[in-house]
Design a protein around this nucleic acid. Structure first.
Lengths: 138, 138
DNA sequence: ATTAACCCTATAACTTTTATGGGGTTTTAC
DNA sequence: GTAAAACCCCATAAAAGTTATAGGGTTAAT
C-alpha cells in the first residue's frame, strides 16, 4: 500500500493539475479540499517542489503551481520520491538496492530472480501511468 | 516492499519445495538455512499451514511439508496472506477494501480509477507467478 | 514414559509513518 | 516602508505497524 504521504501527494498534484489556469494555489485550499493537516501537506509540497514537479510563489497571492506537464509526471517517480522503492525486495530494487541478509548467494536465489521479473512488469505499468491519466478520469 | 514475514514465508516454501522428497522437515533446519529466529518462523509456518499450503507432522521425526503443488501457490495468495492488500490504496482493494477518508465521492475520484487499473495489472502478474517459478530458477 | 516437535497466546522491542509546533525568512500588495 | 500573507526549515511527539521473544501446553513417535 502507498503511504498517506504519497496518496496526498497524488491528490495535491491532481488538484493543481485541475486548476492549472488559476495560477498559484494556497496550501490551505488543498488541505481543506482533502482534509489534510496544513503542516503535513506543506512538507509534501516542498518535496514535490524540490523534485521539480511544482513551482511556488511567496508572499500575498502566492502558492503552488504545476510546472511539469501531467504527461511528464509518471506514478513511478512520485511513488519513489515519497515512498521509496517500488521493488518488493531490497535485493531487486534499482534505486534503493540492498542485499538480503539471509541470502548466501543472490545469484542463485530463485526468489530474487522472480522478483526481478515482477519488478520489471510493475515498473512498466507505473511508468506508463501518469498524472495525466488521473486527470483524464476526473 | 514485502514484509520480512512474507519474504521468509517464500523462502520457507521454496526450501520445502526443493526438499519435497525428504518428507517432513524441521523448523530448525529452515531457520538455520536462512538465519531466521526459530519462533518467528514457527508463526509463519503455522499461518501457511492454516492457509492450506503446508501439512505438518508432530512428534519425533515430525516437521512441515508441502501439500499443494508449487503451480498452485501463486505469489498473490502468499502476499495477501502474510502482508495483506496488494492494491496501492485501501479504496481499490478487493480483499481488504476500505473507503479513503479524504474522498468525498469515490465514483468521481480519478486516483481511484487509475489505481484500479494498476491493481488489475499487478494482480495479473502476481497471480501468474507461482512457487513453481521460484523453484525453476534454483 | 520420555523425548521431540507442533501449537497457542501474550507482550516487549524496534522501526516507520503520521502529525504537530514553533520560529524564521521572503515576497507581495498597499 | 511596513504589515500581512505565504513559503521554508528543523525538531520532536504521537500513533501504528513490524519484528521478535517468551513461556507454557498439547500431540505423537520411538
Amino acid at each position: 500500500m502507498l503511504s498517506k504521504k504519497t496518496k496526498y501527494a497524488l491528490h495535491a498534484l491532481t488538484y493543481l493539475g485541475k486548476h492549472k489556469d488559476k495560477g498559484a494555489i494556497l496550501i490551505q485550499e488543498i488541505s481543506e479540499e482533502y482534509g489534510i493537516s496544513h503542516k503535513f501537506l506543506e512538507n509534501i509540497l516542498l518535496e514535490l517542489k524540490k523534485a521539480g514537479f511544482l513551482g511556488s510563489k511567496k508572499g500575498k497571492g502566492g502558492g503552488y503551481y504545476l510546472i511539469k506537464e501531467p504527461t511528464d509526471i509518471p506514478l513511478s517517480t512520485v511513488i519513489r520520491l515519497l515512498d521509496g522503492p517500488i521493488a518488493l525486495l531490497p535485493c531487486v530494487s534499482l534505486n534503493y538496492y540492498e542485499p538480503c541478509e539471509e541470502c548466501k548467494d543472490q545469484a542463485k536465489c530463485g526468489l530474487n530472480m522472480v522478483m526481478i521479473q515482477v519488478r520489471d512488469e510493475t515498473l512498466k505499468i507505473l511508468k506508463m501511468k501518469s498524472l495525466e491519466d488521473i486527470l483524464k478520469e476526473e
